[in-house]
Design a protein around this nucleic acid. Structure first.
Lengths: 143, 143
DNA sequence: ATGACTGCAAACTCTTTGCACAACA
DNA sequence: TGTTGTGCAAAGAGTTTGCAGTCAT
């Protein structure tokens, strides 16, 4: 994990590039996502952000997450279960999702997405990202 | 595509096995999903079903889709965009989703999910299904 | 100074729940 | 006949929109 100042600089650079404003909300929301290697829902982001920036609103969280996604700093991961989660690991990678407790975890070392991107391209589809979700029971729930 | 009578028998068998009732709604909803190789939202299922069985309600569609998923006859595919879609192709396979028009298509020939299932198992996760979603622009929207 | 961004409130969509009636076994 | 399943209405969760005021540039 890079230091906070580097994380901030990355965001500030991208914002300046596009002549967008650097606001405390954007800085803090971005930090919240990078700080934890967990996957957070919009509600969870708001909870973390509120600790350091009370009064922040959910609509701002949503609009900022959308912006961060456009800037390529965050990925939206849809499992089909309830809320969408946001992930600061932007390279294609796999997730496991537990059917019982809903826990989500990274799955390391799957070459799957690269293969899929190539095949999609061959089919005339201009692919920019692949997400792989594996359903089942986590080790805790399987017992 | 197997004939309708075979599709129905498959469902009826599974229902009888579990001492669940065979109702016209269940038959028609199942047919609607198998008939089109498309991916349908709950609303779209209701629209198709209403043609042959008017008066069918959305809550019934949802509860039946959930049942069909439990019976292993249908998969729920969550893209993270708006509504969840339901797919009668139950074997693990990949989908492409267009960021512009939202169109969803099957992506053939990706061996990817098998690899992921194996890796998840090695990590202590009891995997039962893998779904791969590739984001980008469909050939029509890319132009 | 000026225009982008935020917060508030309300609306909207998708999905689930509770209950009385209908219909499969 | 005894439940299971359905339809209706309403509630609930997650997300988006409109607008007035604030703040970064």
């Amino acid at each position: 994990m890079p230091p906070v100042s580097d994380i901030d600089q990355h965001l500030v650079g991208k914002l300046r590039e596009r002549h967008l404003r650097v606001t405390p909300q954007r800085i803090v929301i971005h930090r919240a996502l990078c700080a934890q290697s967990q996957h957070l829902t919009a509600d969870q982001v708001l909870a973390r952000v509120s600790e350091t920036l009370p009064g922040t609103s959910l609509p701002t969280v949503y609009s900022t997450l959308e912006l961060l996604e456009e800037l390529g700093l965050v990925r939206r991961v849809g499992t089909g279960n309830s809320a969408v989660v946001f992930d600061s690991r932007v390279e294609p990678h796999a997730h496991t999702v537990c059917r019982r407790c809903g826990a989500m975890a990274d799955l390391e070392g799957t070459a799957a997405p690269d293969d899929a991107l190539a095949r999609a391209g061959a089919a005339g589809f201009v692919a920019d990202h692949a997400q792989l979700v594996v359903w089942g029971l986590c080790s805790a729930c399987a017992a």
